[in-house]
Amino acid sequence: MRLRTIRAVTVTAAVLCCALSLSAAAESPLEAAISGKHRTLDFVQRDAARHPLETLTFFGIEPGMTVVEIWPGASGWYTEILAPLLRTHGHLYAAHFNSDSTSQFYRESRADFEVKLTTNPAVYDQVVVTSFNPPAHADIAPPGSADRVVTFRNVHNWYMRGGGDDRVVAAFQAMFRALKPGGVLGVVDHRLPASRPLTDQEDSGYMREDYVIAMAQRAGFVLAAKSEINANPRDTADHPKGVWTLPPTLRLGEVDRDKYLAIGESDRMTLKFVKPKS
């Protein structure tokens, strides 16, 4: 009886050890980057709305790739994930606002981002910062060098304030040049219902999906796939202060705050484009 007990304990210990090893091995490099302790707590709390694991997996981003992140903002929400993922194997270009911009907001945002990169060299020391402000500043990475280019909630910025079709197409053309043949462009942006007029794009911060696809195609891209990863059916895209009415901005302050928190972050399109190989 005692021998059976010893054998049972030995088998149980072996099974537990194997399970722990499989659990540790099951975490992919992308999952490890997302769960990293370096990430800002406020950013982590938005994972449920932004789905970084599913989104970056859909775009096919892996270690060893050269990736360009467009306009990461002052705090680099996605940079916190991409930088450690690509630090040892791969390259990350952060195509930020130009430092000599006439916009004070652009200058300060880039300066804050560059400071962030110095705060944790073990994570950010390999990030290369370039300038992007189409059409004047469009050299986001060496031509034909990138496996992936990703842009999160930026297309509306190129369209608004009089940018229109020309600036949007110029932005896509710059991304097209940076990609290798066969490379992938990933786009996430606030989605305007297809029934709404294009003029609603000017002030709302929302973009019609068919419009974004058409502009990317004008630049030479081919639509490869769509995903509803970042969809939010609670969002009507019709708010007093446009998309900024919703979290995380909550531009109305305490007015109807609970209502907009209940809606959550915006309904978003998630599009994957390919640069043709020939």
Rank of each mutant, 00 (worst) to 15 (best):
I6C: 08
V11C: 07
A14L: 15
V15Y: 02
S21Q: 10
S21V: 12
L22M: 08
L22E: 09
A26R: 13
A26N: 10
E27M: 06
S28N: 02
S28G: 04
P29F: 06
E31Q: 10
A33N: 02
K37W: 06
H38D: 03
T40F: 09
F43I: 06
V44W: 09
R46S: 14
R46N: 13
D47E: 14
R50F: 05
T55N: 02
T55Y: 00
G60E: 13
I61Q: 02
E62C: 08
G64Q: 09
M65Q: 15
V68L: 13
E69W: 03
I70W: 04
I70Q: 08
W71A: 15
A74H: 05
A74Q: 06
S75C: 03
W77E: 03
T79H: 04
T79K: 05
A83E: 08
L85C: 01
L85G: 01
L86G: 10
L86K: 09
H89T: 08
H91Y: 04
Y93T: 03
A94P: 01
A94R: 01
N98K: 12
T102S: 14
S103W: 09
Y106E: 15
R110G: 04
R110F: 05
E114W: 03
T119K: 12
P121V: 09
A122R: 15
V123S: 07
V129R: 05
A136G: 02
A136V: 04
A138W: 02
A138F: 06
T151Y: 04
F152D: 11
V155D: 11
H156L: 12
H156C: 11
W158A: 07
Y159S: 01
G164K: 14
V169M: 09
A171P: 01
A174L: 11
A174Y: 05
G182D: 15
V188R: 02
H190N: 14
P197W: 00
T199C: 05
T199W: 04
Q201D: 07
E202D: 14
S204K: 06
Y206I: 02
R208S: 07
E209M: 12
D210P: 00
R218A: 05
V222H: 08
A225L: 06
S227C: 13
E228M: 05
E228L: 08
N232A: 00
N232P: 00
R234S: 13
P240F: 00
K241L: 14
K241R: 15
K241H: 10
G242E: 10
V243N: 06
T245H: 04
T245S: 11
V255G: 08
D258K: 10
D258M: 07
L261A: 10
D267F: 09
L271Y: 02
L271R: 00
K272T: 11
K272G: 10
V274K: 12
S278E: 14
